[in-house]
Design a protein around this nucleic acid. Structure first.
Lengths: 185, 185
DNA sequence: CTCACCGGTAGACAGTGTCTACTGGCCCTG
DNA sequence: CAGGGCCAGTAGACACTGTCTACCGGTGAG
């Protein structure tokens, strides 16, 4: 069931209506109700699938790149932005705040784990971070930066700053800004 | 008409259905069609109102704070994050990418003007910026950072990094990271 | 005076999410 | 083997939604 759902998601986020999903799965419109109490719960389950997908790619990236934390953060930043573009429907779904009401538990802690990985890398990249700002704050600022770049690109605002929505300069600027250890805040 | 619409928006973004808006305005459900060809066009008009609101507050903030660009950028960052929280329904509406299809022109250039103000302030705060990264790139990275902070707070993820969703540490970290002129990228 | 226009009404239509009653297999127990 | 729960799925209703169309009533210009 959930397998057929994934295929649907590739057709765009607006097509993700309950009845259309059931139609594509070849069942009646009431059938999904047996597995998910509400439409939001179904979407949350799909979003969870997206987090697992992103998590797998993060693990692969970490394994396949130089253990230097700076290199890994660069690779992860590229991965995050690439994921947001190639799976932009899924990415938007994963961060729909209205899905957190009710079925949020289990959805956000999927991202919390990924954030833990980020904090760890930041702490290794900037071992001098002990007081303020703390490593979670720097990691949070970096994540927010990546997330904002992805959001603004999806919104089409990057044409103001770079050519062809090329996020590489923004990515490098963000990494340099947050990871340069000379900054003390 | 549009005046009555604004009042509606305070009741939450999900309540912003075409028929409910007409109901609150005291007219029939077909009346809005005389002014806005489609539901999206109406929402886009409301979003435009939001941009004008934000633009007014930006102008006020610039006028009422120290002309030092660092101080102004700090004030604007606080304003952006405060606006995103107190008008979070409007903020979400302003950045709904599906509203750009069709009625995008006139919606995004409202934000483009605000971005121009940001680029100007960044150029004044870091006059040494001539090569790479350019001032628009740094301003874009900074904007993305602010936007991401707002988005992640709305999503409830800030509890991982700071207490009580206090964005001030993240804001200061972001400003310090992007405005410190020792960074050359 | 006439007539076009303009803002609004009312009803239809397809589509949506949710709810409820019903059906057909399946397995487990007596 | 017979009976009875479960369990996934069906089908239809309900109150919504956005869009479309036909119909009014006033107002202002010719």
């Amino acid at each position: 069931m959930r397998v057929g759902v994934e295929l649907l998601e590739r057709e765009g986020p607006d097509a993700l209506t309950l009845r259309e999903i059931a139609r594509r799965a070849g069942v009646s419109h009431g059938a999904p109700r047996r597995h998910f109490p509400t439409h939001s719960a179904l979407l949350a389950a799909i979003a969870r699938e997206g987090y697992q997908h992103l998590g797998r790619e993060v693990a692969e990236t970490i394994d396949n790149t130089d253990p230097d934390p700076h290199q890994q953060l660069l690779a992860l930043g590229r991965l995050y932005l690439r994921f947001a573009r190639t799976h932009h429907g899924m990415f938007a779904l994963m961060f729909r705040h209205d899905l957190l009401r009710g079925n949020g538990i289990g959805l956000r802690d999927a991202s919390d784990h990924l954030f833990g990985v980020l904090v760890d890398l930041v702490a290794r990249a900037r071992p001098e971070l002990t007081g303020t700002p703390t490593a979670p704050v720097v990691a949070g600022a970096l994540w927010a930066n990546l997330h904002g770049i992805a959001a603004l690109r999806q919104w089409g605002s990057l044409q103001l700053m770079v050519r062809d929505d090329d996020v590489e300069p923004l990515l490098r600027a963000a990494l340099a800004a947050h990871l340069d250890r000379r900054i003390t805040c």
